[in-house]
Design a protein around this nucleic acid. Structure first.
Lengths: 250, 250
DNA sequence: TTGGTTATGATTGTTTTTGATTATTTTTGG
DNA sequence: CCAAAAATAATCAAAAACAATCATAACCAA
């Protein structure tokens, strides 16, 4: 990715969110932390943004939201560990499905040189997949312009012609009664189908997702294995006869 | 490829994408890296663009000037006129298929606010389509990492679930006996299928493509209408009882 | 055709950019 | 306030991109 392209993207993301972490920018641009730091320094010199500890913010921005931003930053390394653990489950020759989402995006670097096949509905994953030379199939479907993911009935139909050894999904809510849930019904249907097409389904979710419920049901708890970071023992106790939970210790 | 033609092409690509790598330009123009570097140096001297490490970007201009610049560039190209003519054929409510390729990419700006549906196999078209708020379906398939297009049997299968009012394809060779041909067999199969799924097929081709033959056959001349720029009358005479040719006059 | 000119692409050594590593500073939680 | 953890800055080697150079190919006019 070319320097001005990166700079523009950084400004663009900042325009939408007004604060951004370095990690986010690393993901969005597929560059290293060092490069992003250099970019931020330069852009700050050009008065395009203001550097803050952990990332950057718009120049006229108050430091009010900083605490929220710090929190999300802390989750990032946990998500990284979850992603890494998930990749340890992938075996040579596997055909896996990668859902759209930041956690699954983090998996991609760990999948390099693994002789596997990836199927995905995430257009935003393609750059990273291509960069790491991973054989990739994209399902068809309607392009959801905001999230750059493929959805809709044609996506459902396209997805159903594949079978997977393993699928890896992000999720918004994990609840004893409601099961796995996510806000968008179309994405929920796709996620649910992916699980049913696979021999083993894995849900990647940090501890904040437990006891949460979102609008659309994806699947029952029993249909997939949860990979998460350190959670309270009583949460595990609550869920343990409903599903399998693997805790990634830090 | 002649120097002024190359220069025009470089400016065109830049107009669409605002940043471009030298490698991309090497592919688009079929010239060497050295030549492209010389071109970029010269164009920079003429203030047509700004060189950056790895490629070139638009000179920093305000968005108004940019669109004017873009527009004037647009009209100057023969391919641009072909693209514009092609878009005039599209009617409200149409569902059309856009092939991967530079000529079809040029069509996209003219399709804005037209209440149509686009289906494509070109991941590289998505940015422009999304930017112009055009409802877009992507077919599924194997991601061909070099060209960012979808190919293979799964793409064929995915494509065949659609039907089109019109399809627009680029092509490499148009020959009396060999018909429409293109280098890559996988792309040829896809193009051919697209034509057969549509009520009307259009081939967008500048005059240099006539009497040329490439490796893989796409379709017979009679299966699609050719849209081209000014060609000799005797070429038209050669082809006129084989197919329909629409000449875009400058 | 010939001789001169220009454009091209390959090759060379040089410069820039990049990402990893290290040491240092800042932030956080007890 | 202190210690641990995270973020940063500084440094360095590798990779990528660069300019300069050269031989060849294409072109043009005589």
């Amino acid at each position: 990715m070319l320097t001005p392209e990166r700079h523009r993207k950084i400004i663009e993301v900042l325009g939408e969110k007004s604060v951004v972490t370095i990690q986010e920018l690393v993901e969005v641009t597929n560059s290293s932390e060092s490069t992003i730091r250099r970019d931020l320094s330069q852009l700050q010199k050009e008065k395009k943004l203001k550097r803050v500890h952990g990332g950057a913010s718009l120049t006229q921005q108050k430091s009010e939201e900083l605490s929220v931003f710090e929190k999300s930053e802390r989750n990032s390394s946990e998500k990284e560990r979850i992603a890494q653990y998930a990749c340890d489950l992938v075996e040579t020759g596997d055909c896996i499905y990668l859902d759209a989402g930041t956690t699954t995006l983090k998996m991609i670097p760990y999948l390099k040189d693994r002789e596997i096949t990836v199927v995905t509905n995430a257009i935003s994953h393609l750059e990273a997949l291509s960069q790491h030379e991973i054989k990739t199939y994209l399902i068809g479907g309607l392009v959801k312009s905001k999230t750059k993911a493929l959805v809709g009935s044609s996506a459902i139909k396209s997805l159903s012609s594949y079978r997977f050894d393993k699928v890896f999904l992000g999720i918004n809510g994990i609840h004893i009664d409601a099961g796995f849930t996510t806000p968008d019904p179309e994405e929920a249907a796709l996620k649910g189908l992916a699980i049913s097409l696979s021999q083993k389904g894995f849900i990647l979710a940090d501890h904040t997702k437990f006891h949460e419920t979102s609008f659309s049901k994806v699947a029952e708890l029993s249909e997939a294995i949860i990979i998460t970071d350190d959670i309270d023992d009583d949460v595990i106790y609550d869920f343990q006869d409903k599903t399998e939970i693997r805790v990634v210790t830090s």
